[in-house]
Amino acid sequence: MPATIDYGKLMHGAMRGLIREVLEGVRDAGLPGEHHFFITFDTMHPDVEIADWLSDRYPGEMTVVMQHWFDDLDVTEDGFAVTLNFGDSPERLYIPYLAIRTFVDPSVEFGLRFDGPDTADDDADLPPADMIELDGDEDEGAPPPGKREAEVVSLDKFRK
Rank of each mutant, 00 (worst) to 15 (best):
F80Y: 15
W69V: 15
P46K: 06
P117V: 05
D71H: 13
L31K: 12
D122Y: 01
P46D: 06
N85Y: 11
H68F: 04
D71N: 06
N85I: 15
A51W: 01
A120V: 05
G25I: 05
D88H: 12
P106L: 06
D88M: 07
D121C: 00
A81D: 13
P128W: 13
P127T: 00
T43L: 02
L93F: 12
E24T: 01
D52A: 15
R57S: 10
D47S: 15
E34M: 06
G136P: 04
D56V: 02
A29G: 00
G111H: 05
H68L: 06
G136F: 05
D130V: 05
T43M: 01
P106Q: 03
R113L: 14
D105F: 10
V65C: 06
V108C: 07
V108L: 03
Y94N: 05
L54V: 12
G30F: 08
P117N: 04
V75G: 08
Y58M: 11
D47H: 15
D135S: 15
I100K: 06
D47P: 06
E49Q: 13
N85K: 12
T102F: 00
D72V: 08
L93G: 02
H36A: 07
E49D: 13
T63R: 15
V26K: 02
L23F: 07
P96Y: 09
H35T: 10
V48H: 12
F41L: 01
D125P: 00
A99P: 03
V26N: 03
A51N: 11
D105Y: 09
L93D: 01
D52V: 13
D123Q: 11
E91F: 01
S107E: 09
D118L: 00
F114L: 09
I132T: 00
D135I: 10
P106I: 09
T76K: 09
D42L: 01
W69E: 13
E61F: 08
L31E: 07
G87D: 13
G60A: 08
V108K: 07
M131A: 00
L31S: 06
T102K: 11
R57Y: 05
R27G: 10
D118Y: 02
Y94M: 10
T83W: 03
G33V: 07
T40V: 10
D74M: 14
D88F: 08
D72M: 14
F41Q: 02
P59M: 06
H45K: 02
I100A: 03
V48K: 07
D42I: 01
T63N: 13
P117K: 04
L73Y: 09
L84Y: 05
T102C: 07
P59R: 13
T40D: 12
N85T: 14
T83C: 11
V26H: 04
I50D: 01
D130F: 10
F38S: 00
Y58V: 04
D74R: 07
T119E: 06
E133V: 02
F103T: 02
D78A: 15
D122H: 03
V64L: 15
R113K: 13
P96L: 11
G111S: 10
E61L: 07
F70T: 02
E49P: 00
